[in-house]
Amino acid sequence: MYPVLSICSWKALRATENVTATNTTMVRNVVKTDNDPPFNGSEFREFANHLGFKHRKITPLWPQANGEAERFMKTIGKAIRAAHSEHRSCKQELYNFLGNYRATPHSTTNATPTELLLGRKLKTRVPEITPPAVNKTVIQDNDWKRKEQMKQYADGKRKATQHKIKIGDQVLVKQQKTDKLSTPYNPQPYTVIKQHASMVTAKTEDKE
């Protein structure tokens, strides 16, 4: 997990680069964020070009598009609230939570996040029998099957249907309400320029 900068400048992004290099020594190929500030600015675009990763922007104001991160933040919030109610250090409990999470096998993959990322297990104080080596092919198959089951369940519950939006269509984009006179959708139409599976990219003259 990395900090989100409320005011994103090139100097702040270079500082984030230093933190990333010191603690992880790796850069992801694709970084997925929402399409709100500070991730929709020119500074973050320059930062992505500088480090060489692809910035993938999800649909604004639609948390389901970034469900994995949203669900994880809900779990973190629960741990922090529990620490606060018991008058413990929220920062230290957050470290403890992340350490336990990274050392706990996932219900779908049966492997810990550390094993999948770094290829080794974290040493903990819990005694255990040495498990067999992780088979990444089996893990990927199980992960795909579980995600497909969750997708079918969510689509059925929401009665989702295939959209008919095509490149060149004009669409209205949902916006946040700032007062009682705000409309649910931005009255300025966007033009669809790209489509990939369920993701649709649209832009106006000054914004994408």
Rank of each mutant, 00 (worst) to 15 (best):
44 F>I: 01
17 E>I: 08
53 F>H: 00
56 R>A: 13
25 T>F: 12
56 R>P: 01
14 R>Q: 13
48 A>Y: 02
59 T>E: 05
27 V>N: 11
39 F>R: 04
12 A>F: 06
43 E>Q: 04
11 K>I: 01
32 K>D: 08
61 L>K: 09
61 L>D: 01
45 R>L: 13
49 N>M: 14
63 P>T: 06
52 G>H: 04
52 G>P: 02
43 E>L: 03
44 F>H: 09
61 L>P: 09
59 T>P: 12
21 A>L: 03
53 F>V: 02
25 T>K: 14
24 T>N: 15
58 I>D: 03
37 P>W: 02
14 R>N: 04
53 F>Q: 05
27 V>I: 07
47 F>I: 07
21 A>R: 06
23 N>Y: 14
29 N>K: 14
39 F>Y: 13
62 W>H: 10
17 E>G: 05
18 N>G: 07
50 H>S: 15
20 T>Q: 08
24 T>M: 03
60 P>S: 07
10 W>H: 11
15 A>L: 13
11 K>S: 12
49 N>V: 09
37 P>V: 02
17 E>S: 09
30 V>G: 02
61 L>Q: 12
38 P>Y: 05
50 H>V: 10
59 T>K: 10
19 V>P: 08
12 A>C: 05
40 N>V: 00
49 N>D: 15
34 D>G: 05
55 H>V: 08
30 V>C: 02
23 N>A: 13
39 F>T: 01
60 P>V: 02
47 F>P: 00
53 F>P: 00
19 V>G: 15
36 D>L: 07
53 F>Y: 06
51 L>S: 08
20 T>G: 11
63 P>Y: 09
51 L>G: 00
48 A>N: 07
26 M>W: 01
63 P>V: 12
24 T>K: 13
25 T>I: 05
40 N>E: 01
25 T>M: 11
62 W>I: 06
18 N>W: 13
36 D>I: 10
54 K>D: 09
35 N>A: 11
20 T>V: 11
46 E>D: 15
34 D>V: 03
49 N>G: 15
14 R>V: 06
55 H>M: 04
41 G>R: 04
42 S>L: 15
17 E>P: 01
50 H>T: 03
45 R>Q: 14
38 P>F: 01
27 V>S: 14
11 K>M: 12
42 S>N: 10
26 M>R: 07
54 K>W: 06
26 M>P: 06
13 L>I: 01
66 N>H: 03
29 N>I: 09
16 T>P: 01
44 F>A: 02
24 T>R: 07
48 A>K: 05
30 V>A: 09
49 N>T: 10
44 F>C: 03
11 K>V: 04
54 K>E: 13
